[in-house]
Amino acid sequence: MKWPRPAQPMTGPVIPIASESSGSNFDFRLHPPSASLPSHSHSHAIADTPLAVNCFTMSLSSASSTLLRTCARQQLPTSRTASPFASANERGSTLKIPNFSKYQSNKNPRSNQVFSYFMAGTMGLASAVGAKATVQDFLVNMSASADVLAQAKVEIALGAIPEGKNVIIKWRGKPVFIRHRTQGEIDEAREVKWESLRDPQADEDRAQRPEWLVMLGVCTHLGCVPIGEAGDYGGWFCPCHGSHYDISGRIRKGPAPLNLEVPSYQFPEDETLVIG
């Protein structure tokens, strides 16, 4: 095949050719071909010429089928033989795995575990103490004030209450009946067959001392305040709905379901009563 001779020699610049499959760069300089290239010298020319130059020349000049077959046989490197990415050994490569060996502790791993457990336990203990203090402060703020606690207990001098009389005092915002009963009233209260009552309760269970009867002055029906020394049984009577209580404060007639409540009290001295 004869090549056309250029008018002037071609001494062009170096043109880089990049292969997409190999990522490599080839530099070559374009030179004018000879006037005629014998057919038997195709293989020598192809063997002596870089592969990228031959393929590039083929694309420019539409070379013969022999050159096409040679380029097909001698393919450029693919991704199966060479990685398209840069090597990790190259300078400035971002594929290098960082080395953290200088941060590694030289101590025994068991000692590190002990230290970790100690720190976790210390933080847990500190958190528990803080939570306890928070809850305790909250409960203290929600507790009763000093004036309310002062009314938690009431002390009464019993010597000022004559026999056969009632005294009403205020305890925790509620009225309290204190009755100094006579011997006749005590006998009357104990002669009743309490087993057949609506709210069965013996008089001995309601009075620590027979002569002193202490009860909350609140009707068990709707919370009214009964009247003392009234009613059909000589005890207390609720005028709101007609509940009758006997001399022991037990319900005997009317809508009230339960007896008058007995609060917690004690006798620290013979003439002193403490409620609460």
Results as ranks from 00 to 15, higher is better:
M1Q: 06
M1K: 08
P4T: 08
R5L: 13
P9I: 15
N25E: 14
N25R: 11
D27S: 13
F28L: 12
P32E: 15
S34V: 14
L37P: 00
H42A: 09
H44E: 14
T49H: 04
P50F: 03
P50C: 05
L51K: 10
A52K: 00
V53R: 06
V53M: 12
N54H: 05
F56M: 05
T57Y: 09
L60S: 11
T66K: 04
L67H: 09
R69Q: 07
T70G: 01
A72W: 06
S79C: 03
R80P: 04
P84H: 07
P84G: 10
S87I: 01
N89D: 03
R91C: 02
T94A: 13
T94V: 09
L95R: 15
K96Y: 07
S101N: 08
N108S: 12
N108H: 14
R110M: 09
N112E: 12
S116T: 15
S116A: 15
Y117F: 12
F118K: 02
F118D: 05
M119P: 01
G121F: 13
G124P: 03
L125K: 04
V129K: 14
G130Y: 10
A131F: 14
K132R: 11
T134P: 06
F138A: 15
F138Q: 11
L139F: 02
N141M: 10
D147F: 07
L149R: 12
A150K: 12
K153H: 11
V154E: 02
V154K: 14
G159N: 14
A160N: 15
I161A: 11
I161P: 12
P162Y: 05
E163N: 11
K165C: 08
R172T: 10
R172W: 04
P175Y: 00
I178E: 07
I178A: 08
T182F: 01
T182W: 02
Q183G: 04
E185G: 03
I186Y: 04
A189N: 08
E191R: 15
V192R: 10
K193I: 03
S196K: 10
L197H: 05
R198W: 09
R198S: 13
D199W: 05
Q201Y: 04
E204T: 15
R209W: 05
W212H: 05
L216K: 05
T220M: 07
C224E: 06
C224A: 10
G228W: 09
A230E: 09
G231R: 00
Y233P: 01
Y233L: 00
G234P: 15
G234K: 06
G235D: 04
F237T: 02
C238N: 01
C238H: 03
C240E: 09
G242H: 03
G242E: 00
R250D: 01
R252K: 03
R252N: 01
G254K: 00
P257A: 03
E261T: 14
P268F: 09
